[in-house]
Amino acid sequence: MNVAAEPRLAPDALGASILLRDLSVTYPNGVTAVRDASFALDPGTICALVGVNGSGKSTIFKAIMGFVKPSAGEVRLCGLPVDAALKKNIVAYVPQSEDIDWNFPVLVEQVVMMGRYGHMNFLRMPSRADRYKVDQALERVGMNDWRKRQIGELSGGQKKRVFLARSLAQEGRIILLDEPFTGIDVKTEAAIIGLLRELRAAGHLMLVSTHNLGSVPDFCDHVVLLNRTVLAAGPTAEVFTRANLERAFGGVLRDFRLGGRHLHDDDDARSLTVLTDDERPLVFYGGKTQPREDEP
């Protein structure tokens, strides 16, 4: 993939990059979850990681976070090996809602403050700058009024925003988002997408694992399609095509196709295809996806 041509990078975010080179991961039980996966992502990118369950999305996240060691190949973040990159707070992680214990006795502002831990000394004593950045992050996601709440008291969308605020406070150049749109309303989804766009403009690199195929063309400029290896990777317009998606999902998705005279009574020969895994459906008219009207 190409480095973005426009000079739109904030200086502090320069050089955010993810490189997977021939990555293979085999678990101790002998299952090879990912084989020979390669892709490269540059600063100022929102990239969707798309594939069926078990296609290796979470394994690739785990490899980027250093939870699993590659059995072959390598992962480089901003040119560094994983452990060195993590020590430098380069990567922020927004977890899936089900990975969090919502009864944990911790307040919203304390979760966001955890984003600053990597910048503090070993006793994790927050400085004035840390507090300021927490305030900023909470303000930016609109959760300032909720800062003293225990996290379990929030709605699904608010919970997501808190963890986004934590990644903002962490100031990671690379942000991993694991299923960010599961269980949230359309309004929060739009707000999150708006925030991701701002971060992209500031030069951050975001890798988003999602089942929500319908919104991928709206905000992701790159797509990596997975099925135990990389099926296709590149700009959304080139990669996110019906042919590729059928390869990635092979019969797993609901697929509605309407065409010819059934669709409308004229000479327009294009057919309408709806692909969905029961979240937001993906609609092809002819061979192309249709961006929503309200998008820039």
Partner: peptide
């Protein structure tokens, strides 16, 4: 105590801060 809290609360985040 704080490092252990983060580890038990959200292990992925704990790793992301090194």
């Amino acid at each position: 105590w704080k490092d252990l809290m983060v580890t038990f609360f959200d292990e992925s985040h704990a790793r992301s801060i090194g």
